[in-house]
Design a protein around this nucleic acid. Structure first.
Length: 486
DNA sequence: TGAAATGTTGGGGCG
DNA sequence: ACGCCCCAACATTTC
């Protein structure tokens, strides 16, 4: 006989918060002195939820599997269901006899879905409650003096920091009162791991999803955060936190990350790292204001931008790391192999697509959405719009990375290129970022045949730069013509 | 969270 | 000694 047989259970609906520690919805449910029923819904039907990309689905599968096993009953304590949340959550609530449904609050389009789910409950007499868990502060709680949405990152950061330290993270519940048996789908039936993707194996070598590994990764990073200042841009160094997919799926919370960083000695590295965490908050702040962020230019002037005609072959070359620019190709291949790319390489690869190939940023955004394990509905499009210049507080369009220079600055010994573009591995450092400038005998000695073992640059940098600047100039012309007309 | 073009300065070679 | 040129090296401006 369960200890809490007389009490109606609490249903905890997990979403992008696959953790037991610092999980306010779970903690509150455990305090109710009633059985706790744990549910995850794989929702591919609700229009508010952007269908996950392939790499993220792989991560989700692994992280759910890990969470389920830790929750006990041979994984059956975590109920898995597939379907529209609006249908499934009330159904599981009824089936379990729950008196209450708890979840951690979401923002952006998903907030509207949660409201619909909550609205579908009252007739059944089931109460719902949501909790702040997945941000330092609720993204819509940071407002300008006039009550508006910030358009400039530094102003947003200042306003956020004026709130002081975010709440301290909660410990994991000492125990979770056992729930009642409810039918669960088998994790395999969620079809999270697409058959035939040849990259899932290599992603598996690169990552260990789940809260325990996430907690260890955070502790490990906090211990070496001093290296972050000097080495975070070094492509071959392992100086970044690599916490992004953990945050994406909520294996750790931003508050845990913030307090772990705040517990280290004061340093520039710490402040820089916290800024990156706040960029994530800023992206959600923007998404909450503009749910169409992944599709629409935030600067409307870019609606008239003369993107070049893009050819499938060119896009393929970019996606699969065959552009002929080693630093770009190394980044894109790291992405394809591991579901993750170093931040510096992301900027260079994204800049190359948007400015050298003059392709609409949405083409790149979709590819990153499909291949990154950490792609979030907010950060991914915000970062692409930042690169393209179409977003708030964006990089100016005329800031065009020179892929050779970026390689020489941030991968001076070519270790990153050699790791991900092994066919260039034997080139001397002097040519590793510009193989087309190497003398024939050097190429031959390194076993490189341009156009055969490794492509020629798909576009000349100087010409591409000129073309991008010209395209941007026409945009400005159109802008001023519009002003005159109006 | 650039890069390239242009401008300025100052040392050294040289007539 | 002097002016001149060249050209790094650095600074500023422009895209």
């Amino acid at each position: 006989m369960p200890r809490f047989a007389g009490q109606s259970p609490t249903l905890v609906w997990f979403r992008d918060d696959l953790r037991l520690a610092d999980n306010p919805a779970l903690a509150a449910a455990c305090r109710r002195d009633a059985p706790v029923v744990l549910l995850y819904v794989h929702d591919e039907e609700s229009p508010e939820i952007r269908p996950l990309g392939g790499a993220a689905l792989w991560w989700l599968h692994e992280s759910l599997d890990n969470l389920g096993k830790r929750l006990g009953a041979g994984g059956r304590a975590l109920i898995l269901r597939r379907g529209a949340a609006e249908v499934v959550v009330p159904e599981v609530a009824r089936a379990s006899g729950a008196a209450a449904v708890y979840w951690n609050r979401r923002f952006g389009a998903a907030a509207a879905l949660d409201e619909r789910v909550a609205a579908s409950m009252p007739g059944t007499g089931i109460v719902t409650a949501s909790f702040e868990a997945n941000f330092l502060f609720a993204p819509n709680a940071i407002r300008t003096a006039a009550g508006g949405t910030f358009q400039v990152f530094t102003a947003f950061r200042r306003a956020l920091q004026e709130k002081g330290a975010p709440p301290r993270p909660l410990p994991a519940p000492a125990s979770i009162p056992a729930g009642v048996p409810v039918r669960s789908d088998r994790i395999e039936s969620l079809d999270l791991i697409p058959a035939g993707h040849d990259w899932t194996a290599s992603i598996g070598d690169a990552w260990q999803p789940g809260e325990p590994a996430a907690t260890a990764a955070l502790a490990g990073f906090a211990a070496r955060i001093d290296r972050y200042a000097a080495e975070r841009d070094r492509l071959a160094a392992d100086a970044t936190s690599r916490l992004s997919p953990r945050l994406r799926f909520g294996e750790i919370s931003p508050r845990q990350v913030w307090h772990a960083a705040a517990g280290t000695p004061e340093s520039g590295a710490r402040d820089t790292f916290l800024s990156e965490l706040i960029w994530r908050e800023f992206a959600w702040h923007l998404l909450d204001d503009r749910p169409d962020l992944a599709e629409a230019n935030l600067k409307p002037a870019f609606d008239d931008f003369p993107w070049a005609e893009t050819f499938a072959d060119d896009i393929w070359a970019w996606r699969r790391g065959r552009t002929g620019y080693p630093i770009v190709d190394a980044g894109m291949r790291q992405l394809w192999a591991t579901g993750w790319m170093h931040n510096r390489a992301r900027m260079v690869a994204a800049s190359f697509l948007v400015k050298h190939l003059l392709a609409d940023w949405r083409i790149g955004e979709e590819w990153f959405w499909d291949t990154l394990v950490d792609a979030e509905p907010a950060s991914n499009p915000v970062n692409w719009q930042w690169v393209a210049g179409s977003g708030p507080d964006a990089q100016p369009f005329f800031r065009i990375f020179n892929p050779v220079r970026q390689g020489e600055r941030f991968d001076p010994d070519g270790a990153y290129v050699r790791r991900w573009v092994p066919e260039l591995g034997r080139l001397p450092d002097a040519f590793i970022h510009k193989p087309w400038t190497a003398p024939d005998d050097v190429l031959e000695a390194a076993g490189v045949r341009l156009g055969a073992t490794y492509p020629h640059p798909m576009i000349d940098h100087t010409k591409a730069r000129r073309r991008a600047l010209d395209a941007f100039a026409t945009l400005k012309q159109r802008e001023s013509a519009k002003k005159l007309a109006s």
